[in-house]
Nucleic acid binder design. Sequence first.
DNA 1: GATGAATGAGACTTCATTCAT
DNA 2: AATGAATGAAGTCTCATTCAT
Lengths: 196, 196, 196, 196
Amino acid sequence: MRKTPRQARSRALVEAILEAGARILSVEGWAGFTTNAVAERAGVSIGSLYQYFPDKLALTDAIRQRHLDDCMAVLRLSQDAALSPDAFAAGLARAMISAHLKHPGLHRVLLDEAPASSDYRNPQSVFEQAYLACFEAAVARYRGEANRVAALVLSDAIDGIVHNAARRGMLAEPEVERELVAVVLASLALRTRPSS
Amino acid sequence: MRKTPRQARSRALVEAILEAGARILSVEGWAGFTTNAVAERAGVSIGSLYQYFPDKLALTDAIRQRHLDDCMAVLRLSQDAALSPDAFAAGLARAMISAHLKHPGLHRVLLDEAPASSDYRNPQSVFEQAYLACFEAAVARYRGEANRVAALVLSDAIDGIVHNAARRGMLAEPEVERELVAVVLASLALRTRPSS
Amino acid sequence: MRKTPRQARSRALVEAILEAGARILSVEGWAGFTTNAVAERAGVSIGSLYQYFPDKLALTDAIRQRHLDDCMAVLRLSQDAALSPDAFAAGLARAMISAHLKHPGLHRVLLDEAPASSDYRNPQSVFEQAYLACFEAAVARYRGEANRVAALVLSDAIDGIVHNAARRGMLAEPEVERELVAVVLASLALRTRPSS
Amino acid sequence: MRKTPRQARSRALVEAILEAGARILSVEGWAGFTTNAVAERAGVSIGSLYQYFPDKLALTDAIRQRHLDDCMAVLRLSQDAALSPDAFAAGLARAMISAHLKHPGLHRVLLDEAPASSDYRNPQSVFEQAYLACFEAAVARYRGEANRVAALVLSDAIDGIVHNAARRGMLAEPEVERELVAVVLASLALRTRPSS
DNA sequence: GATGAATGAGACTTCATTCAT
DNA sequence: AATGAATGAAGTCTCATTCAT
């Protein structure tokens, strides 16, 4: 950000911009996400937007950061070493679904369409490290082995299930949640080479 | 298409355009996919492109159609009622991975970013019907029950795994394929409510 | 208009665009009337033009509307029930000529070449209604009969005379004005079937 | 024309092009008049069109020339020194109307929109000389005076009446023809300064 | 001669960004 | 600090014209 908002008014302004941007990205996708549209939706002048974000990329990054923080918060809540596998899978599925219910399209747009300044999806990035750590811990806990790739694949499978359900408007359907739980559970019950 | 290419030269030209478009979509994403860039990469004038495609959307549709046809062809090959679950899962994983190896980013861009004239990802569309039918058949065969949602979730999980692996450049790694096989197999071995 | 200009600068900008557009249409015709040319002639960027006019057609309509308003204003001034036929014809001729002196080619281009969003030249359009009403009133007054077609033909004859004189650069010649007065007067002096 | 067609086939080809061009100009206006459209409508390849016409302007000129020749032919037929004023006016009106019935919009498009290589509407041009000569002769005959401007104004009034009637689709209405006759007759009955 | 695929200059329009007020 | 009018590079698409077959 170009400058840190210190006063209450400034913080509210930045908040309004981020929220307006998230909503536009979610509803209209990357194509409808123009800086002028965001400013207008936020009830702010385009000039003010550029006071706090040097360019469109910085704005996008800020929206993404906020969204990923939300996701991590929700994900961490589902981490509890004392849970049974069933309870863990149920909690994780519930957490992932609820994290996407507010802006169903946002996650996909931010991760698939929107350009990013840093390669935050690289396995070495801060976010991905923290995100994957949760899954690696769960794999270690329930499968009894450290397996980085298995954690990656599990998180990717969940990602695909949730993001496609969101696109189809099926995110809230109990059947989807039930199947998601089943897939997570099955993945965690596996040893690495089940076929041998 | 605006005009059907009849002569050999025309067919080669259309082929060059489609190939150049696929490559650009794969490597540079939707943002780099400009009609002028496609024409230039194809070694063709922009006017020639518009002789065969009435607008950018039609070009996008044509590239997508060709890609989906390839995917369906590969998918159908993996369908064989006589296969054991292990063999089926292995064949399916191999098929999905190989379908994405040529243009790793293409699938994601075409399905997530590129606008389409018809809603081909609607569950009622011709493509999605055919695509899901394969998964429904497999679920019925190996889980012994018809379960539309389970088929949907399985195909979405595979989609997530393959598309994220492609983004990370891990599509060719044997470990990924092994885990993909495991997830497919686990999903097919499930009864609907494994926890009850 | 996309935006209503509120500040003095904006109004001047819109004014400059309309004036530049009118001049280009008048001098170079529809073929030279490109949005970039209008912006450049107005000393304004192309983006500014599009802030106020959503597309080329809207700009054309605005220029036409302004011109037609000018014409109607000038025409209404010549309407005075107390005038003698001679005085009326003289006033009308003077009015029509002066309405075209500023941009001699504009009228023809706007009415014959430039596409319009609505069919303003349809006899039922608001403008044509008002315009023809003046001529119908004059015909009724001086010929003593209501005759819609006669009014139409009179206005068309004047149109032809003025617009061809403009093209020939003869609009300011006294002889043309004299003959125009004569034709108007003769038309108003007629009974419908003068030969029978 | 680039080359003179000598053989029967060539003459038919040129004929087809001119006719197709006239029809397109009449029906779709200058905007729809593209060289490719003309060639296609004529059932001829675009290359063949360019064999006989070096560019679009030459094609336009040829179509115009043919149309003006038709007009002159029809106009000359109405010239007969022995006619009474009434009979002359009736014949002239009939001639002008019938000259425009085949392609009602063509005349206007050719004279107002289509660019021309030479300034054929300049009073000094060959066509205008011949055309105006007819009107000057009539003015001299029936008004008993040589008056170039009166002839010009009369021909322009007729032009306006006919061309606007064509646009309104009223060209065939008897009332229009009757009023046209009346205007012509009144113009020819005038002395130059009727008001003094 | 005839064909029509190919060319590319140029038109319309959008939107990220700046800067005078 | 805030505003929003203004900018102009860049993208999509058309159509007059050429030239290899």
